[in-house]
């Protein structure tokens, strides 16, 4: 899981306590509006990593407030992080809720698939508008890392919008085919003739 590897990667840079890890993660991802990680998730992940021997407590800091447990990466953690760097990240391309909704709306007399497409297109355009606004506010010299992340999201939205146009253009054709159905296999023993 990615938060787990992000924690390993951040601890490989230098030892940190839980609160610091969360701020560093947020800075990396460009703010919690992009990817929110709750403190509880950081602490749970840290203790699991500690149980597996991938991180270890390096020191306890106390400056008036509650104790801060500072963690460091272990050699086993370093190895796990290395494996992560060497492997590919698996992306899910075909698990698509909108596709399901559209296909089911085509064969539902109370639904209008064209309206389903329109609502989705409007929503994607609003997301794209939000991202371009966010991107314009960033400085190309200082915020290059965040710009790269925004650009990825922008490119995906562009592709989603193009795909919607294509689906809309072929909707009547799709409608004229029978909907996908499972292959019917007779249950039980074949009847004696």
């Amino acid at each position: 899981m990615s938060v787990r590897h992000a924690i390993l990667g951040l601890l490989a840079q230098k030892p940190r306590h839980g609160y610091e890890l969360r701020s560093a993660f947020e800075a990396l991802i460009g703010g919690e509006q992009n990817w929110e990680v709750k403190p509880a998730q950081i602490y749970t992940t840290l203790s699991r990593l500690e149980e597996s021997g991938l991180v270890a407590e390096a020191a306890i800091e106390q400056d008036g407030g509650p104790e801060k447990h500072i963690f460091d990466i272990t050699p086993a953690g370093r190895e796990e992080l290395g494996d992560w760097f060497e492997g590919a990240v698996e992306e899910v391309h075909q698990r698509d809720e909108f596709y399901l909704k559209l296909m089911l709306s085509i064969n539902d007399e109370f639904a209008d698939p064209y309206a389903v497409i329109h609502v989705q297109r409007s929503s994607l355009f609003r997301d794209l508008h939000g991202l371009t606004t966010q991107r314009q506010a960033l400085n190309g010299m200082e915020n290059l890392a965040q710009i790269l992340l925004l650009d990825k999201a922008v490119m995906h939205l562009e592709a989603d919008l193009r795909w919607l146009d294509m689906v809309e253009g072929r909707l009547d054709e799709i409608r004229s085919h029978p909907p996908p159905e499972p292959e019917t296999r007779p249950r039980g023993r074949p009847k004696k003739s």
């Binding site: 355009f125 794209l128 371009t132 939205l157």
Partner: peptide
Amino acid sequence: DPRIAAYADRI
């Protein structure tokens, strides 16, 4: 171009 249109207030 959808990316360019997304800068507008309304499409």
